[in-house]
Computed example of a mutant assay.
Amino acid sequence: MLNIAYVGFGKSTNRYHLPYLKLRLDQFKVGRIVTPTLGKRPADQAFWEATGTIFSTDIADIINDEQIDLVVVVTPSASHFSVTKQLLAAGKNVLVDKPMAANLAEAQTLIELAKAQHLFLMPYQSRRFDSDFLTVQHVLQQGYLGRLIDLEVHMDHYRPDAGVTSGPKIDGSLFGHGVHLVDQIVSLLGSPHAATYDLRAAREIGATVDDQIEVNLFYDQAVKATLQTTELAMVQYPKWQLRGTKGTFIKYQVDEQENDLKAGIMPGTAGFGLDAPQNFGQLVYSNQSGDRIERHLPSLPGDYGRIYDSIFDTLTHGAPKLVSDEQMLTVMKILSAGDLENSPSVVKF
């Protein structure tokens, strides 16, 4: 049993973290939750208090509690570095929401501090357990496509009036949405040798924070991975397109977990997060006999809670971290190299 604490008790904690913890109370106990405002979510607070969770407004309560095995940081992005650094310096293992820092130098500082203290540190890259990503991973592992040539992944919305127009780089789409897609690509393909960046402020001319991005990552053996996000997509584009020497895989629909969570459908409910058959990806490939095969490939089930399963295995059984230090640094290297003011740009690593 791991005794964990949360810094932050807002939407993200209550939508993307705690619903999955409710299914894992045989492995985790939520010992403490620190939040700036007590009673803001009375029903949720009452539920966890009934399980023995102690609520307070001072992070020192977590730092001074020697029974806490892991602290989960779910605060505004700009505070991730300072809060995580404070907790690591105090000897606490940390899972920090994405992005883990505002630049590569900050990420290096956190990783070096964790190593020096022999502590666990990892970003909450929950979208490694998106249904669509797990299915793409399966397609590549099974070799349906032959040698991969092009991979394209989107995270698109139609939100013309939402979002910030000024602020630090960490508040832009590259660090906000792009961090998920970069991590997915890095987990599949590793570190690229070059990248191109097209970062724009499209919703409001003159804004200083990017809200539309295209990043191309270049690898050996003629492989290119493209990630795009926009807030002005009224017509849906495929979430994934993969092309190889022997086949193509296309999937339009995104993972359903977030849609279900927003609708109040919780993990553990029958059918939670599952794709409808009409939303399965289309796989077209040439088999060993040279026959053209077309099929709709059933989506593998997603489960953001599996990131907590991986942490339990690491902290209790010594298993390797789901997101390695090298992968953390590669993601932050790619994010840090993007610059709205100098876009479009080419960077060689």
Score class of each variant (00 low, 15 high):
I62G: 06
M1Q: 00
S343F: 07
V235R: 09
D130L: 07
N279M: 08
L110P: 08
Q221R: 01
N342R: 13
T269E: 00
Q137I: 03
T226W: 06
L110C: 07
S131M: 08
V74M: 04
Y252D: 00
H296N: 11
I62L: 06
Q212C: 05
H17R: 06
A276W: 08
T229F: 10
M122D: 07
A116V: 04
V34M: 04
V331W: 08
K40D: 06
A207M: 13
G39C: 01
V30W: 06
F218V: 09
S343M: 12
H154G: 10
L95F: 01
L110T: 12
A5R: 10
D275E: 02
D211R: 04
G91Y: 01
G318D: 02
F28A: 00
V72D: 01
D171H: 14
N279Q: 12
Y304Q: 00
D220N: 08
T53H: 06
F28Q: 06
P238L: 07
D291Q: 15
Q108M: 09
G190T: 14
K92H: 13
G302R: 10
E204Q: 14
D291M: 13
F280N: 14
V254F: 10
D171S: 15
F120A: 01
V74T: 14
F218D: 04
P298A: 09
Y285H: 13
K115E: 12
L70P: 06
K115L: 02
T330N: 01
S77L: 14
P344A: 12
T269F: 06
A5I: 05
G244Q: 00
R128S: 04
